[in-house]
Amino acid sequence: MNLDLLLQLVVNGLIVGTLYGVVAMCFVLIYKSTQIVNFAQGEFLLIGAWVCWWLMTSFEAPIWIGFPLTFLFMLIFGVLLQVVVLRPMIGEPIISVIMVTIGLSIFFQSLMGWMFGVFAKPFPRVFETESINILGLQVQTAYMMSLVISLVIMVGFYYFFKYSRLGLAMRATAFNQQVAQSLGISVKQVFAMSWAISAMVSALAGVVVGMVNGVSSALSFFGIKVFPAVILGGLDSIVGAIVGGLTIGVLENLAEYFDAQWLHLGNLYTVAPFYVLVIILMIKPYGLFGTKDIERI
């Protein structure tokens, strides 16, 4: 029985982990191309989920209309955010940039709380069946869909960065802004697009989590959970973000298992990632795949 539970938890962890991975990837995307640590990543999930929820409940829009509209909204939102708030911060010290995103985070968190309330609201049903049975394991349909969508996003990111023009421009900008600019890449456009893409994909993750757990302000905690994942993988590595996300997802569920079985501490799974975070920072600050900062004197 215990083994079954363990297996179930590991599978859950992997599925939640892919979501962490997707959000972490969005985080890394912004960090890599604009050198900004985005503390408001969780609010992207929150805003996306609420917008989609609002479209689907107030206008009773079906999901295939609600989803693209949410995407469009997040695209505009991301670009506006970058242009209005983040562009003046270029060249400012790290603390200012961090504080601006933190300011954004509490601003939008309370704005969403004001508009939609703090209590979790269930998403309109999208699937006929709650959960499906795979090899004897109960997996929620929305999670299954999230797994598929996450994998699609990951493959999409890979092709986008490898072959598309904008993706190449983004990589060039991340590699060296000045050289990229001198080659005719519009760095401003790249910055705006990376925020927009990050906001869009985060919103997708937000909608998926909202379908399973209901939409509530707890979604913004994803933005905090992302830190252990990205630090584990390395702040500027897309692959690292995925690996980190999966690891943290599994680790959380394992911590819950060990806690329930032996330790009985309660709530271990919420803090365990942060202990891991501190340990990684102590022994390997640049993570598994991150590039090490080498400073010239």
Binding site: I102, G103, I106, F107, S110
Partner: peptide
Amino acid sequence: GVAYIKQMAIGLAIILFLIFEP
């Protein structure tokens, strides 16, 4: 929404100060 407005004001104050009076 007073409680939320207070929080929003805090966030907004931080952002505005950083942009206009760092």
